[in-house]
Design a protein around this nucleic acid. Structure first.
Lengths: 366, 366
DNA sequence: TTGTAAGCGTTATCAA
DNA sequence: TTGATAACGCTTACAA
């Protein structure tokens, strides 16, 4: 099966009359118009809605378009119309399937409506977020999507200004109540409450009978959502009469980090935790695999609970209990909300999306 | 896509004199200039290179910039300059860490040089690739990066036209020799040769003493690179006197697919393969886990070899042998090559990047 | 149904 | 060192 599609005679873009232009000799509306024997505005109209030009004109324009291989210049179009069909999104990263799925949801929803998605990643750094935000704003997007509710000072200003200029701004992957003081703006949030999740994780382990718990926090210092879950986990555990230790995973490969952390969880002694919750599934899987290697029975000696429900998690044995997140739905719902705001003028409203704790063998009660 | 309700134009942070403009009341160079008491071109110059304006002018402009919160309009800038600092890239997907790392490499290399990266994903579909390519070209990028050397007819035309217009085009993740016939354009390729990898995979298993081999191909019909590796694997195996079976993994979750496939590899019988190579590590891991579940000893009864060396692979036991790929380097090298082409005018040249077969326990000889 | 004129916000070019 | 003016390629507004 070699190249099934031999390129048809690409009769090199037809370069019409105009020669010495400042531009790069690309085919413009003007060029197409000359070929079709009309003016550029007619071609422009045909492109927007073929029905508004006369049938025979339309035919000529269609031919000219095909003949020239015209590609509209978005810079010019957006500049002239003053409105942009760009939605800019800032995510911590894309290599992680978590945010990649959210990006996919956004893309699916927006593309169908003719909007373009411009994505930048921050690597969890607030500083980079501010920098990227500034760069994205240069495209003059119609709306803004940022991750989480914590931003650098400069970013906050930019967001506030955007908001003030009637640009919809949505914070995703979080859904928190109002915070006291400091805030001079209030954005729409589409996500879930990390405190709730942290509490639910603790409750799940306590229901399975555990009274000595550990939370293994993310090694990414800026992942405040993981820290929040940890705080809520610890609070709920203590409120329920359990002991809690909070550890921080080392940086680097998350599986390796999880393995290392197991060393701190596993050593004998009466005060050793009997159950551990993790900031993400990779850490938990690392610990699970290391426990298997050491012959430490899970969940009998140590119950393990992840977060994120990555695809590997239910494949291991024992299968890892984890929190299933509306990864894709966050993106999809955000797109929906944005489209309502941009086209119908409905102000975007905050939405708490559902998550579930999938109880599997790694936390099964004795 | 009609837009009956354009977003209401609200006043930006510091709305200077000019009122009834067609635009959206955003701060422009003009506005900054008025505040600074100069003309817009001076501000523009300051932005390009602060050293070319007088020191006291520079100070006034700097203040005005800060005071107004000016954000340059990229549409206008790119349109006026005629040159774009955009590199457009088309990748099969981003949720897969494979291509996400390549994207990261591209981004790292380009951003440092002041270029913007515009990414679109094709979902392995040539049709979507063509569509996305058309959309990306609308931004009039300075260069184009596409994945692989197979493209739909229309896409080939677009690429040829781009090339003809002196736009650098690089095909990544592949590095094949010239193909017979049909091709009237030749793009730069930065990647590795999938035939070589396929042959090496077969050689590795044969060196470990196996004579009945299987290749488990990707369930993604459009992943021709996986198919190519399979063909080369089979050829090399037969040339080496081994038997080969080629299976195709079912669609859906790759771990599950790998588990399912094991059912076809495992049943007893004298002609059962003793070693299997997979189109990717997720499939191989699924098979590895399923073998463990069934008590089928790996590699004693069945050796398993993956492709891609995903982070989970070396964590399992036995650790999965796999092919380590220059994921990040492909992006980085492509960026380097593009920068040379765009700034120094050096034509981009094809590069075969090194890969290695990491031999681990899952293919250890008896 | 089609065309003319003006303008979007920036940069290139040339002049002062 | 700074400014005036004309592009860049398209769309809006209005006229025919």
């Amino acid at each position: 099966m070699s190249d099934p599609n031999p390129p048809p005679a690409a009769a090199g873009p037809v370069p019409p009359s105009r020669q010495a232009r400042r531009g790069h000799g690309r085919i413009t509306l003007q060029d197409v118009a000359e070929v079709a024997g009309v003016t550029s505005i007619t071609v422009s109209r045909y492109l927007r809605d073929p029905a508004v030009v006369a049938a025979d004109t339309a035919a000529r324009v269609r031919d000219a378009l095909a003949q020239t291989g015209y590609v509209p210049n978005k810079q010019a179009g957006l500049l002239a119309s003053g409105r942009s069909n760009i939605v800019a999104a800032l995510l911590p990263n894309l290599s992680n399937s978590i945010f990649a799925e959210t990006a996919q949801g956004l893309s699916d929803g927006l593309q169908a409506a003719g909007f373009e998605l411009l994505i930048a990643s921050t690597g969890y750094s607030l500083e980079r977020e501010e920098h990227q935000l500034r760069a994205l704003l240069g495209w003059h997007p119609a709306a803004l999507v940022v991750t989480g509710r914590r931003h650098a000072g400069g970013a906050l200003q930019l967001l506030a200004a955007a908001q003030a200029a009637a640009m919809p701004v949505i914070e995703i992957w979080d859904h928190a109540g109002a915070e006291r003081g400091q805030r001079r703006y209030r954005h729409t949030q589409i996500g879930f409450n990390h405190h709730e999740v942290g509490r639910a994780m603790a409750a799940h382990l306590m229901q399975a009978g555990h009274r000595r718990l550990a939370y293994v926090d993310s090694g990414v210092a800026e992942d405040y959502r993981a820290h929040e879950r940890g705080l809520a986990f610890a609070d709920a555990a203590r409120a329920g009469g359990a002991q809690v230790t909070v550890l921080t995973a080392p940086a680097g490969d998350a599986f390796d980090a999880g393995r290392q952390v197991l060393g701190e969880l596993a050593p004998g002694g009466a005060r050793r935790p009997t159950a551990a919750a993790f900031a993400n599934d990779h850490l938990a899987c690392g610990a699970l695999l290391e426990a298997a290697r050491r012959g430490l029975p899970v969940p009998a000696q140590l119950a393990l609970l992840g977060f994120g429900d990555f695809s590997i998690s239910r494949q291991l044995s024992p299968a890892l209990s984890s929190v299933q997140l509306p990864r894709y739905e966050i993106g999809r719902e955000t797109a929906r909300s944005l489209l309502d705001a941009l086209r119908l003028g409905k102000p975007a409203v905050s939405v708490a999306l559902p998550w579930t704790l999938a109880a599997r063998a790694s936390t099964a009660p004795a």
